[in-house]
């Protein structure tokens, strides 16, 4: 018979870690991950051919902006589509029944799924950032110019990851009550769009509800650079903002999922 310690913190963490690693293993085998990874690498490399359309920016800055934008865009797609696919494949296959009838709490399942997706997104961003960094380094050598300090590039990549992992959390919230992967993917993407609408809202406008939603615009590196770069306090503030919304979205998803029947 199982020796129960299901309520204790270490036991709970162990289950979350198991579900997360299982989710990551599943996610790495998704055709979607491979396809978006390849598309991302191609898009990043395409910056070289598109550098003539640089809107007046220096070539290296254009390549950096274009590459980071591509990583963010495809990362958002992977966050929404991948999260929905992985969640609903568990439901469709009946495998979720084998997990939730064990002493696994619904919140642990949600936390494990989110952690697994965040790990996938971290690998995705890191792999594409590496391609971009190599490309920038090669062009720097050819042009004899400098893109900028490495920490700023790393900060920009970290901000992209924070942003796309929030999209995964938003999609997971939809998954917790939605009936299909298609609906959850579309709704997840729509919520990501809404999270970019903050500049268009005013306190008395009809879009005021957007102010309750995470502001993904905060994770764009450009405004920070214009203000002299991201300070340690600024970075910590952003991480704190991200952590609060990850906990809120994850907690809300767990609450809704707790009442779901299979």
């Amino acid at each position: 018979m199982v020796e129960t310690s299901q309520g204790s913190g270490p036991a709970s963490l162990r289950r979350v870690r198991l579900i997360a690693s299982h989710t990551l293993a599943e996610a790495l085998r998704l055709r979607l991950s491979v396809l978006l990874g390849l598309a991302g690498a191609m898009l990043v490399l395409m910056a070289l051919w598109l550098r003539d359309f640089n809107f007046g920016a220096t070539e290296l800055k254009f390549i950096g902006d274009f590459g980071l934008g591509a990583i963010g865009l495809l990362g958002t797609l992977l966050a929404a589509l991948g999260t929905a696919h992985l969640f609903f494949s568990d439901i469709g296959s009946g495998a979720i029944g084998c997990v939730l009838t064990r002493p696994v709490r619904r919140g642990e399942y949600i936390a494990g799924k989110l952690a697994g997706m965040m790990a996938l997104l971290a690998l995705f961003v890191a792999a594409l950032a590496l391609v971009l960094a190599v490309m920038i380094a090669l062009r720097e050598a050819q042009l004899g110019a400098s893109f900028g300090p490495l920490p700023v590039f790393l900060q920009a990549c970290a901000l992209v990851w924070l942003k796309v992992s929030l999209v995964a959390a938003m999609t997971l919230l939809v998954c917790s009550y939605a009936g299909s992967a298609l609906f959850a993917s579309c709704a997840g993407l729509l919520l990501a769009v809404i999270a970019h609408l903050r500049p268009f809202t005013s306190a008395d406008g009809w879009l005021v509800f957007v102010r309750l939603w995470p502001n993904l615009g905060l994770f764009d590196i450009e405004p920070w650079l214009a203000g002299g770069g991201l300070t340690t306090a600024g970075l910590l503030g952003l991480v704190g903002y991200w952590a609060v919304f990850i906990l809120l979205l994850g907690g809300l998803a767990s609450y809704v999922f707790k009442h779901r029947e299979f």
Binding site: M1, V2, T4, Q6, G7, H22, A25, E26, R29, S93, G94, A95, G97, C98, T101, R102, P103, V104, R105
Partner: peptide, 21 residues
């Protein structure tokens, strides 16, 4: 409940597990 789930083993109808594992 946690206590009940610790005592139960369940085989769903037509379960399809992770095929790559």
């Amino acid at each position: 409940t946690d206590a009940a789930r610790a005592l139960v083993g369940y085989l769903p109808e037509s379960a399809c597990f992770a095929p790559h594992q």
